[in-house]
């Protein structure tokens, strides 16, 4: 799972080579920051958490066994750091959501042909924390609902309804943005 380039960077980083650590940092920091900012919304908090992520990455690099790619391993750390932050702040409270309240309009796909991904990014940030977190983990980071349920300590059905809710809200936001243009 580890590329030769990353293996070399890891080995050098483990022996305290600051340049190699800098290379790993530069390679992944942007993606990790974007995950963080979608999860915690405030850029300054996301930056701080991203720094925490890399402190952890270099502290725990010798535990990286190569069972996933280095990027996927760092991404998991990023998500954990962000979730812990949201929990510590008491922000991450996900209510059991009654699926029946979701409007049928959700299933319609009357979206415009092309969407600017910056608009999607900003729209995700504006979602309520519960559906934003589930939507981020499921749609963007590739987690399954049972994994999300375990991570967030919610039921699988709550994960699914939070996701549907998030998707519906996201569509509504995008429609309102594009239809107003």
């Amino acid at each position: 799972m580890i590329s030769k380039e990353n293996q070399l960077l890891i080995n050098k980083s483990l022996s305290g080579n600051r340049l190699a650590q800098g290379d790993i940092y530069r390679k992944y920091v942007k993606a990790m920051y974007h995950i963080a900012v979608r999860m915690v919304v405030q850029p300054s908090v996301a930056k701080d958490l991203t720094q925490d992520v890399f402190v952890k990455v270099f502290e725990e690099l010798d535990r990286f066994r190569g069972e996933s790619t280095l990027g996927a391993w760092i991404k998991r750390i990023t998500i954990n750091v962000c979730l812990n932050h949201l929990r510590r702040k008491g922000i991450l409270q996900i209510d059991e959501w009654d699926d029946s309240v979701l409007q049928v309009a959700d299933e319609s796909n009357d979206m415009i042909e092309e969407i600017d991904m910056k608009v999607v990014h900003d729209a995700i940030k504006s979602l309520p924390v519960g559906s934003r977190t589930v939507l981020t983990l499921y749609l963007l980071e590739g987690y399954r609902h049972n994994e999300i349920a375990e991570i967030l300590e919610i039921s699988v059905s709550t994960s699914k309804t939070q996701y549907r809710r998030g998707k519906q809200l996201l569509k509504e936001k995008l429609k309102s943005i594009y239809h107003n243009d």
Partner: peptide, 27 residues
């Protein structure tokens, strides 16, 4: 008309390069 899920998944990588970030400064 687009399928939002599919659209976002197929453009996922773009979401890692939306906000300006001064990487050197952060490093």
């Amino acid at each position: 008309m687009i399928d939002l899920e599919k659209y976002i998944r197929s453009h996922r990588s773009e979401l890692d390069d939306i906000e300006d970030l001064n990487i050197d400064e952060m490093w």
